[in-house]
Design a protein around this nucleic acid. Structure first.
Lengths: 356, 356
DNA sequence: ATGAAAGCGCTAACAT
DNA sequence: ATGTTAGCGCTTTCAT
């Protein structure tokens, strides 16, 4: 008594429901071989129209659905990519995540997400480990932070969105949002308005995104031989912008500040306003991101728009290319559009009013 | 010549790298059976400390990692849950998503994400289908929309975050953020201040979240025998709040409005301000969500805080319970805390100034 | 406390 | 154009 033929009730409940149909069941009903069912579902060539139709109908009738685990095991591919992103509702990272999901689904890839906390040491490594355990064909690290760790070896292509990657990988890709150039444009806008110099309210030092923006700001200043004020340090939050703003309000020599994101710009403006300084008459401020609220703040915020969707789509295309053509060269990434959105938070400095 | 023993190079490159170690390799190196390796990695009982250590070391040495596809196939469980969420960076849905991921990971579940576009008919059904194809043990639908569709049959537990679900499922769960009660609190705050009545700027009708808030607003009004003004219709965006605000500005009889989210409240305020009305002297407005920017707007926004993290964690706990105890009753959900955050956008109406 | 054997439901290679 | 066969790397019985 081996009971080999009595498969059907195998003890444990399989795939959420005991009577789930298999491809063999479909094959039997359609009067073809199991392999043919597989062919139909994978859109392989050499299947007659007639057979294809019969198979589809049988599948429909039974409510057949391919078992992904079996596919993964047999093919060695998961058709899914993992995304490591910050576990907060920040506009930038979130926009990137949504863009990636959309792009991934459109090319037949599923998305697994793991979040990190900013103050969790080794969080990135843990997140990547977890994705590797789950099984993914590629990984995208969105807006990475410099954790100063030893590189981890990863066997799948890794796309770093917004920075160089700390992960050694067979293929390490990287796309930027062109943050540095965007930052430069923002700074130049202020300079063009006639400001003597521009202060910069930066994001946390460990973020590559923050460094890029600071670099762009420096470049703009240097190109016009402007004096470079001390960097103002924020943490992306409006609260940090507010804190910096309170200090800045006392210094009447500052007439223009470029904040590394819109949230900080808004916090900064609130503090300045509370201190009785007028925006933009007394001080101009430009943000970064163009969040949906930017046009509605007081005053409406001048900012640079980050092409999140563009970057997400382009990055994902690169990653999928690397996954599916392991040896091939990577297609060059095109430059994202730079867009400065001038609203009401910037103006020329008051003549002669800039010196305290 | 069957070559059965020559396994090792099986033609196609398996799992991103040909030489990936299997559990047999670990077993061999540790001098135990393959099953024992499995035992160790699953924390099963009846493994001696000595053996456990040897296995772990061998695994470490080889860089062994369990193959998830094989585990899923053999066990019939994916240990992952799917999340359907709106593909935008809205604060609420995003916060829920992040909260769910964190909670899921803490109990050993991976998260698959699929986004929907609001104007994509049948988007929800498609998203759920896609998750089912990928293989998930449970599904959470975050902030669902009433698509008026026929219910779809799903074989896994479904958790609806913020609304009744349109999916027939073996177990359909549902947790609310207590939106209705929150809305009621917000409205009462305005009434307590002395306003004759309160207008409501609602979210899109198809959203259950919008309906809940409107219901809470109505209840508060009814409880005090206040006249119920016509509903103002928005779409969650600040832009829609702005549009409504422009119309409202002309009507001096409105002194208090409760917006269904902070973004719309901010757009509304911008329009009112642009029209020369003062906030809160001429009109009070309260928002909903308590987004991080709320304290920094002009004026700082009075709003009700949604307990996203609480709801996400609690909902996920429920879902996992349903997954792992298919027959058991569900533990009752505790009520989320209600929190009104009073800032500067609300005040008592000017005496006698409320009639145009 | 440990091991041997038998699949899980597919895809891949090789027929035909 | 379609079928046959042999795994993919685990977990699950069931022995011992």
């Amino acid at each position: 008594m081996l009971g080999r033929e009595e498969t059907g009730m195998t003890g444990t409940m399989r795939q959420a429901g005991a009577g789930t149909p298999r491809s063999v069941d479909v094959a039997r009903l359609a009067g073809v071989s199991q392999k043919t069912v597989s062919r139909v579902f994978n859109d392989e060539p050499y299947v007659s129209e007639d057979v294809r139709r019969r198979v589809m109908q049988a599948a429909d009738e039974l409510g057949y659905r391919r078992n992904n685990a079996a596919r993964m095991l047999a093919s060695g591919r998961t058709r899914s990519i993992g995304v490591v992103t910050l576990g907060t509702a920040l506009y930038g990272p979130t926009s990137l995540l949504m863009g990636i999901e959309r792009a991934a689904r459109s090319v037949g890839y599923a998305v697994r997400v793991v979040t990190t906390l900013e103050d969790d040491p080794g969080g990135l490594a843990g997140a990547v480990e977890s994705l590797l355990d789950q099984g993914v064909d590629g990984i995208v690290i969105s807006e990475p932070i410099d954790e100063g760790e030893a590189p981890i070896r990863v066997d799948v292509p890794v796309l770093s969105l917004g920075a160089p990657s700390a992960f050694a990988s067979s293929q390490t890709l990287s796309t930027g949002v062109g943050a540095s150039e965007l930052a430069r444009t923002a700074t130049e806008h202020l300079l063009d308005l006639g400001h003597r110099t521009v202060h910069h309210l930066a994001g946390p030092e460990r973020w590559y995104a923050a460094r890029d923006r600071a670099a762009g700001w420096r470049a703009a200043l240097a190109a016009r031989d402007k004096q470079e004020p001390a960097l103002l340090q924020g943490d992306w939050s409006a609260a940090s912008g507010y804190a910096v703003g309170r200090e800045l309000a006392a210094d009447s020599s500052v007439t223009a500040v470029f904040a590394a994101n819109d949230d900080m710009a808004i916090g900064l403006i609130r503090a300045l306003l509370d201190a009785g300084r007028r925006i933009p008459q007394d001080v101009s401020v430009v943000g970064f991101d163009d969040i949906p609220l930017a046009p509605y703040t007081t005053p409406p915020l001048t900012t640079v728009r980050q092409p999140f969707d563009f970057v997400a789509r382009e990055g994902l295309t690169l990653l999928v290319h690397a996954i599916e053509n392991p040896e091939a060269d990577l297609p060059p990434a095109s430059d994202p559009p730079v867009e400065l959105v001038v609203r009401a938070s910037t103006a020329a400095p008051r003549p002669g009013g800039s010196e305290g």
